[in-house]
Design a protein around this nucleic acid. Sequence first.
DNA 1: ACCTGAACACCGTTCAAGT
DNA 2: ACCTGAACACCGTTCAAGT
Lengths: 212, 212
Amino acid sequence: MGKINQERREEILSAALRIAENGGLAAMSMRAIGAEVGLTPMALYGYFASKDELLDWLVGRVLQEVPPPDPRAHWPERLLACARGARAAAHRYPRTFSVLLNRPVVLPEAIRAVDPLYGALMDAGIPHERVAGWERMFSTFVLGFAVSEVSGRFGEGNLGTRERRECLDPGELPAHHRLGEVLDLPVDWDAEFEEGLARLVAMIEEEGAGTA
Amino acid sequence: MGKINQERREEILSAALRIAENGGLAAMSMRAIGAEVGLTPMALYGYFASKDELLDWLVGRVLQEVPPPDPRAHWPERLLACARGARAAAHRYPRTFSVLLNRPVVLPEAIRAVDPLYGALMDAGIPHERVAGWERMFSTFVLGFAVSEVSGRFGEGNLGTRERRECLDPGELPAHHRLGEVLDLPVDWDAEFEEGLARLVAMIEEEGAGTA
DNA sequence: ACCTGAACACCGTTCAAGT
DNA sequence: ACCTGAACACCGTTCAAGT
């Protein structure tokens, strides 16, 4: 077991990432990945037991691109750095990033990515038994926002919203009708992300201060 | 165009949902769906232009199972009802629910599901131009939490966490090491969801009161 | 330790044809 | 309007074989 060429494995994962970003996750077949690195598809099974396992490793590959925060910075800056780094990775790999939310991650890379968050929350004064819960809140917001953004769930720059709204019975959509054109205003996604983040940090500070 | 048997369409979507829940999303092939409703796979293309479009409709099918809140209830209760209804749907369809976060939803059902949230936020006193942003925060939390729960991202009841932690260099995971056994405590997911929800509602109330 | 070729049981989708 | 059968170009994966 185990004595397999690690560099080659990284090379394969990078190829998979490249293919997914160029043609979408559906284009990322074992055959396509193999061709990209100059191998038969069957050769990949020497590095990954199945395509499913390859996808697990791909989660780790994406997580590696979220740089760990500077440990000398104050805890709010460390939280912000993790959050912004994760969102930046989502923008860099918009077609692949959603795997982070879809797969039950049990990789070393996942634990390694969480550790700085635990550290920052403890430094904020959060009681130990509540650190994991706050980390879940924080990462759920960050990943949920980032995935919604790149998957288009938030609407693609609100194009076409108006038309779609109007082809529905207005009596069925009273709130949309009351809001009207306000819904077509452009959105500053950076600002919205930062505002949510700031609120979370403020809540963490408050809970931390209460027990300091 | 358009004059197609709607009941049959619903029947097909229910069959698709059934198959995905029994065997996972990967088992939901056009062939399997066809067989489940007693049709050739090709017959499905009379109802959906492609499997991708069928998946879009499936999002609507799942959203239909989130009951609209009682419009006579106070706005916080309406928000809570929507959130709990969505999470309940996630628990009912754990293997299918993640499609809600992965697909750019442009269906009437999606707009219909959002309308009660817009209404509640306006009744809370949120300025009109900030209603959509608050709705995104709220639904991101609800969907993100629910998807993380059913996809296993939060850890499967924390089983095996300890072992996984220990096979990593403890010097690389200082925060995990400091927290130690606290990380193995059981989690009350209902309570954690409700706590996050309560915080959101409190924040909404605060912003609404500031401009009332 | 690493890779290949042929083969198996599947996919989504098109197209011509049937009622 | 609705459905079928045959066919095309793909899948992931196994297995025996090669170096």
